[in-house]
Design a protein around this nucleic acid. Structure first.
Lengths: 143, 143
DNA sequence: TGTTATTATGATAATAACTTTCATTTTCAA
DNA sequence: TTGAAAATGAAAGTTATTATCATAATAACA
């Protein structure tokens, strides 16, 4: 999903919840949608403050909570003590492979793995709606 | 790996690091090894205090840190704001499927998925040493 | 276009989990 | 046994997250 489509989706979500639209929230969301990293609140706040220095941490926090609830962001914990937010990808789903030495994060997709997951879940009586797959290892530079 | 084997491994690890063995640490480790849940520090402390009420949070914390460093425990974050510790399984590796409604956690193994992971990683120049796979969905009771 | 009820904001305080500090106790090699 | 080094427990310090509250902004409607 691209950025403008995400902004539209957000607008619908806000309307459906009876909330009000604000410039701050729009700008935070837009900034997040345009970031391509696994961004933390602190990092996002920093980005946002470049153009609008008077925006507060709490507003960024609440916006990301809203986006997460609305399915436009995915909150994740990679183990560094901070919650990081992931953007919905343009197309399809991806997983992560993380270097335990230099913390480099690469992304990948594998349709076959996804199929096997659904199958396995079904056997256990579960219906899968989402998943997280993280591989940990050494990247080419750190091997 | 069974509990007594784990205690032995711990002993070797402690020796190799030039540390000293203590009754508290042994008891905490043993209690952890015998727990079969994804236990938090608070929960483990509670268990431990039943027999040895004067043990402190910090000691449990330090023991779990040690076990994690020694590869005898795996620290995980399922998103409830607490670090949880997982026991090494008796045999092989397992993954998790978590019900988003009732938080029930089931475990599963799938050799084929593991193979595909290694393959995929290799293509990206990574060598996998560990992984986390979590499926989220509805269990049979919550569907 | 005002009015007004409701929501949002930003600053700050509170919370919760994790980590460190420090005085004291315990361990263990010589 | 003794003494250097490590461990413990209580408490204090950190850090990220969440809540509070006074004020400002929004939007439905007369």
């Amino acid at each position: 999903m691209n950025t403008s489509k995400k902004m539209e989706t957000l607008k619908s979500y806000i309307e459906s919840k009876g909330l009000k639209s604000t410039a701050q929230r729009d700008y935070i969301a837009d900034t997040f949608f345009k970031s391509n990293t696994h961004i933390s609140l602190e990092e996002l706040l920093k980005k946002v403050k470049r153009k609008t220095p008077n925006i507060g941490y709490a507003t960024v926090y609440r916006t990301m909570k809203l986006l997460t609830e609305g399915g436009l962001a995915i909150s994740r914990q990679f183990g560094d003590g901070q919650t990081r937010y992931e953007n919905l990808p343009e197309y399809g789903h991806h997983d992560h492979i993380i270097c335990v030495k230099c913390s480099k994060i690469a992304e990948f997709q594998n349709q076959k793995i996804e199929e096997l997951q659904s199958e396995t879940a079904k056997k256990l009586g579960f219906t899968v709606i989402n998943h997280k797959l993280e591989l940990y290892g050494y990247c080419s530079g750190c091997a």
